[in-house]
């Protein structure tokens, strides 16, 4: 735990308030309750207030919606990687499928926007799950490689077969009625997804997911079909991605091949690594940092990809716990040096 130095070492102790607010005693005073609820409240209120703060600057409002879309993807990635044990490097597949499904529903079948987004979420999740189904028995690296290939393959297919508008994509989707609905729909979906998944992984079915991640053999020996549970996990994660994709298509009123692009695969991963894997809230924080950075670097063209590739590498090599775990440790514990 503590780092070794000559003659002394760093000791970490839980803060008093952390210990006091464990369990039922948390309700003993406002201070303890705030200690527990504070960070969560900060995130919720912060996100909800963000559109108001950014007020009249349409550019930053658009950045905020993009942040939410990436965050949905990143939460899905984190959930799959750290609670189900499937590292899916092809997040762009979910965005692309969601965008195309929603676009087809909206333009071909005339489904209104308030119905096409939820339908694209569920249908798209189903389609992604079916596509990935044959790969579910694969482990670790192999699943990662195959999932990396899927968005490339999907884009090439659309290009080669010239379906769904080919390289032009599908145009003429309905937009959101106004800016505020655009932002608030996404922010509320994001918060629901975040707290929903956090609850899930600690109770009920979430325990089976974590079992599959820790030791799939033992789960099999417990009479549980792990492929089914992996599929459910992929469905949940890809639905989040498809939700983001559908929203993205409606924001730009267009769905096209570029929605299978590399950005959608790499930023969520970078955000998860920077924010802290396995925390679920970490990826959201990661997106809040990385996406604006990448927007600021937009003038430099592809340099931004190089920059966050370097950030990603630096974090994975030198600070693999991520900001969220680091922050949580500082929040819950204090450190001091002890002579040995």
């Amino acid at each position: 735990m503590a780092k070794q130095h000559e003659g002394r070492r760093r000791e970490r102790l839980d803060r008093g308030i952390k210990v006091r607010s464990d369990g039922v005693y948390a309700v003993s005073s406002w201070r303890e309750m705030m200690f527990l609820v504070g960070p969560r409240l900060l995130l919720i209120v912060g996100l909800l207030a963000m559109p108001l703060i950014l007020g009249g600057v349409p550019y930053w409002q658009k950045v905020l919606t993009i942040i939410c879309i990436y965050a949905l993807l990143a939460i899905g990635f984190d959930f799959l990687a750290h609670y189900v044990g499937l590292v899916s490097l092809g997040g762009a597949l979910y965005i692309g499928v969601g965008a195309y499904v929603s676009a087809l529903l909206n333009t071909e079948f005339g489904v209104p926007i308030w119905a096409s987004i939820p339908m694209a979420t569920v249908l798209g999740g189903g389609i992604c799950t079916l596509l990935l189904w044959p790969c579910l028995p694969l482990r670790g690296v192999y699943f990662a490689i195959v999932s990396l290939m899927f968005p490339l393959l999907a884009a090439r297919f659309i290009e080669a077969l010239d379906i769904f508008g080919g390289t032009d994509g599908i145009m003429g989707l309905d937009g959101f009625p106004n800016k505020w609905s655009e932002m608030y729909v996404l922010i509320i979906c994001l918060l629901l997804a975040l707290f929903g998944l956090r609850r899930l992984v600690n109770e009920d079915m979430g325990l089976v997911f974590r079992g599959v991640k820790d030791n799939d053999q033992a789960v099999k020996a417990s009479g549980i079909n792990i492929t089914y549970y992996k599929a459910v996990g992929v469905f949940l994660a890809s639905s989040l991605g498809c939700l983001g994709g559908a929203a993205l298509a409606h924001i730009y009123m267009w769905a096209g091949i570029s929605q299978f692009a590399l950005d959608f695969s790499i930023i969520p991963i970078a955000a998860t690594v920077v924010g802290g894997g396995g925390t679920l809230a970490g990826p959201v924080i990661g997106c809040l940092i990385l996406v604006p950075v990448s927007e600021l670097l937009r003038d430099f063209g592809t340099l931004r990809i190089a920059v966050y590739a370097l950030i990603l590498m630096a974090f994975i090599v030198f600070k693999s716990e991520g900001l969220m775990s680091y922050g949580a440790r500082k929040y819950n514990q204090f450190e001091h040096w002890v002579e040995i």
């Binding site: 079992g211 820790d214 030791n215 033992a218 020996a221 417990s222 009479g223």
Partner: peptide
Amino acid sequence: TRTFQVMRPYFSL
């Protein structure tokens, strides 16, 4: 059902 020679419980739980 069976147990495993190499014990690997669900360590994160």
